[in-house]
Design a protein around this nucleic acid. Sequence first.
RNA 1: GGGGCUGUAGUAGAGUCGGUUACAACGCCGGCCUGUCACGCCGGAGGUCGCGGGUUCGAGUCCCGUCAGCCCCGCCA
Length: 595
Amino acid sequence: MNDKLGNWKRTHRCGELAAQQIGEEVCVMGWVQRRRDHGGLIFIDLRDRDGIIQLALDPDRDPAAHSKAEQVRNEFVLAARGKVSPRPEGTVNPKMKTGEVEIEISELLILNRSETPPFMIDEYSDVAENIRLKYRYLDLRRPALQNNLLMRHQVAKTVRNYLDGQGFIEVETPVLTKSTPEGARDYLVPSRVNPGNFFALPQSPQLFKQLLMVSGYDRYFQIVKCFRDEDLRADRQPEFTQIDCEMSFVNRDDVMTIMEGMVASIFEATLGVELSLPMARLSYAEAMDRYGVDNPDLRFDLELVTITELVANSEFKVFASVAKDGGLVKALNAKGCAGFSRKELDDLTEFVKIYGAKGLAWVKVTEEGWQSPIAKFFSAAELDSLNAKLNAEVGDLLLFVADKSSITNEALGRLRGHLGQKLGLAKKDVYKFVWITDFPLLEWDGEERRHVAVHHPFTAPLEEDIELLDSEPGKARAQAYDLVLNGSEVGGGSIRIHDQAVQSRMFELLGIDEAEAREKFGFLLDALSFGAPPHGGIAFGLDRLMMILAGADSIRDVIAFPKTQKATCLLSEAPNEVSEKQLQELAIRLRKAPK
RNA sequence: GGGGCUGUAGUAGAGUCGGUUACAACGCCGGCCUGUCACGCCGGAGGUCGCGGGUUCGAGUCCCGUCAGCCCCGCCA
């Protein structure tokens, strides 16, 4: 049936053959991209992960190899020996990297055959994603995904080299660990040996990396899988990879500076892009004021402008009442967009409603002044001050949202991002980084009627805000920082609390009493009491970073075996039911029998 | 939990106002072809129109339900 590999040895990868190998006897192995049978001559494009080389089979030169080539079909696995030759005059293919040469085949092995694949393994065919995911091993043969995974390897390698050079050591932390109810939903794993008890898969190695600092490892990193049992998005998978770092005896600036170097080395190694350092920094408060979100896309301006005071006394009741009730009225000036159609304006209105805004007021600035349903409510003085504040010029489109501040900011901030995409201002090959700093330490959870940590409960407050913990804890800011790239949060971290008393006070503020704190985090509190150094760290979302580096629209395109939006694997058909015997061993009985 | 988009040969699509045997492309199979390279020419096979129900003389097309994939809100410290 199939030929045996025997002692054949590959001498070259397909993509590396070029004029300098002319005359050499070589051996290549790979998959059949395409066979072109001219009756006499047969050409086979042989593909491996490195590229494609043309095999030429001439019936006059080697009848045995030629007749074997007649059986060959797409995706067969071949080994071929022959001499690298220049292509005849006029048959050079400039579109191929190896297009100047071909291999004159003298011996051919069919190492394995292939069914006709469900879709063509090429860069042209556009295939539905459920088919691609079911046959992921075939999809992964295609150049786009191969390039993404090769680049991902390059990033991991660069990160390891860089961090090693900075004195970091990679330490593995447990995957079977303890459930911590703060934060996202945990994936649980039942313990057979301890019936009724469960491990949780880590949402991050947070506590373990802090323990490593207590242990004196000084600089730790890990490229590590993390798990969160929450709903998926285009940039969210239930298992994802973090570049996780922690350092002792550092402040925020130290962490940010070292990590900027890491990110710069990644961009240099993968894209050849040189980033200008240091990166921009923006306080949370300023980001919210100017962009409405804590992850602004700085590839374009379109800044939000607060106009609450200017409209507080206007005849337009929607704005005036929001202003009087302590809400927020903001606007953005979409330069040159006065030509938007009614349909486009309706679409923008629908867009802001997703984020809770009740409506979107618009103004087209024309030679005759404001063309707008709301123009008549404003005095000449109000119009003048609004035009001045918004830098309004003929041809501009002004967009307003009035609501409580959280809604106004999010609706208009997301609209800003939407317009950046729609107007083509967000260019894929431009990379704008910004650190967002001085996040609030706590936020009030109305449902649970308590403060919750904005970042996590181990984040240290700003030193100058520590006294606020007793007076106005909601006003305290955190020593936390997020790295935002093109409107996407790619990393986040903080200086941690290393003082046991401060950590206990923090749990108290979060409404976690001493008994509960001991039960959940006792091991951390104990560790802090045995000489914990000041420390802090950061974690980067490798997948999101890869999306931007690879120009991918979906996180699934940078992960080898991703899950669907319903968190299933179409390839392996996980998750699946398990046998009654397995359940019995785990002391588990299902509440509902499976369908 | 909610909103939206999509589902027609192996693949990606067309299918008008509900009307005869559901189209052409790529792929596949067979034949021809000695310089192609997303080869070319000739011929052929291939369909539970996602699934179930309903309306109708008649449903790929209209209605209801359901399943799957995707996007979004909630959720994601």
